[in-house]
Lab assay of single mutants.
Amino acid sequence: DTINITLPDGKTLTLTVTPEFTVKELAEEIARRLGLSPEDIKDTHNGKTLDPSLTLAEYGITPGSTITLEIK
């Protein structure tokens, strides 16, 4: 299953994830792909900052969802 990550420059990154991924694991994968530190990444969905300890499923993030990435 894939989700879309909207980057600060407007580009989109597509990642393969499972509903059990935590937001922290997602940030780590994004950081790895972009050459950043996971601590520099802030993920938001529907205007809410995502708690790193919760899973994508707990936020109702499903395949095809879009998450907005902010760099701290």
Rank of each mutant, 00 (worst) to 15 (best):
28 E>H: 07
11 K>M: 11
53 S>G: 08
38 P>N: 07
30 I>R: 00
67 I>P: 01
67 I>C: 06
35 G>V: 02
31 A>P: 00
22 T>D: 01
18 T>N: 09
70 E>V: 11
61 I>H: 02
25 E>S: 05
10 G>P: 00
7 L>I: 05
20 E>L: 12
55 T>L: 04
10 G>S: 03
2 T>G: 06
57 A>L: 13
56 L>P: 01
47 G>C: 13
55 T>K: 06
39 E>L: 15
57 A>S: 09
58 E>T: 04
56 L>I: 09
61 I>T: 01
13 L>W: 10
66 T>F: 07
43 D>N: 15
62 T>W: 10
49 T>R: 08
29 E>S: 05
4 N>E: 07
49 T>D: 13
8 P>D: 06
13 L>P: 00
27 A>C: 14
56 L>S: 00
45 H>C: 14
17 V>P: 02
58 E>N: 04
5 I>E: 00
56 L>K: 00
23 V>Y: 05
2 T>H: 10
13 L>H: 05
57 A>Q: 10
23 V>M: 11
42 K>V: 15
46 N>F: 15
35 G>S: 06
24 K>W: 14
65 S>R: 02
53 S>F: 07
67 I>V: 11
48 K>F: 14
34 L>I: 06
63 P>T: 08
15 L>E: 00
17 V>K: 00
50 L>G: 04
22 T>V: 01
45 H>Q: 10
46 N>I: 10
63 P>H: 10
6 T>Q: 14
70 E>L: 10
10 G>M: 04
6 T>C: 13
3 I>C: 02
12 T>N: 09
2 T>M: 08
6 T>Y: 12
9 D>N: 12
38 P>E: 06
62 T>N: 08
61 I>E: 00
3 I>T: 01
4 N>R: 11
43 D>F: 15
19 P>M: 08
43 D>C: 15
72 K>G: 12
69 L>V: 14
62 T>K: 09
12 T>A: 06
43 D>E: 15
70 E>P: 05
70 E>K: 05
7 L>M: 10
50 L>R: 02
60 G>L: 03
19 P>D: 07
15 L>V: 14
60 G>I: 02
21 F>R: 05
62 T>H: 13
14 T>F: 09
64 G>P: 02
50 L>S: 03
9 D>T: 06
26 L>Y: 04
34 L>G: 03
33 R>P: 01
5 I>G: 00
59 Y>G: 04
21 F>N: 05
36 L>Y: 10
28 E>F: 07
12 T>H: 09
13 L>M: 12
44 T>P: 13
58 E>L: 02
32 R>F: 10
69 L>Q: 01
31 A>R: 05
32 R>A: 10
51 D>A: 03
50 L>D: 04
49 T>F: 14
40 D>L: 12
68 T>V: 13
39 E>F: 15
16 T>M: 11
51 D>L: 04
10 G>N: 06
44 T>L: 15
54 L>P: 02
15 L>D: 00
1 D>R: 06
68 T>A: 14
31 A>T: 05
1 D>I: 15
12 T>E: 06
69 L>W: 05
44 T>Q: 11
63 P>R: 02
34 L>R: 01
8 P>G: 09
30 I>V: 11
46 N>M: 09
53 S>M: 11
41 I>Q: 02
33 R>C: 09
14 T>W: 07
28 E>K: 05
11 K>E: 10
5 I>P: 01
4 N>I: 08
3 I>M: 03
71 I>C: 07
56 L>R: 00
53 S>L: 10
8 P>F: 06
15 L>N: 00
71 I>D: 05
42 K>G: 13
42 K>C: 12
24 K>S: 07
33 R>V: 12
33 R>F: 11
51 D>H: 04
46 N>V: 08
44 T>C: 12
33 R>Q: 13
3 I>E: 00
30 I>F: 03
5 I>A: 02
27 A>K: 13
15 L>A: 02
60 G>Y: 02
18 T>H: 12
10 G>W: 02
61 I>S: 02
49 T>K: 13
45 H>K: 06
19 P>G: 04
29 E>G: 02
25 E>I: 03
19 P>A: 07
12 T>C: 09
63 P>K: 03
35 G>K: 05
71 I>H: 06
47 G>K: 02
8 P>K: 09
33 R>D: 03
8 P>S: 12
68 T>K: 13
10 G>E: 02
18 T>K: 08
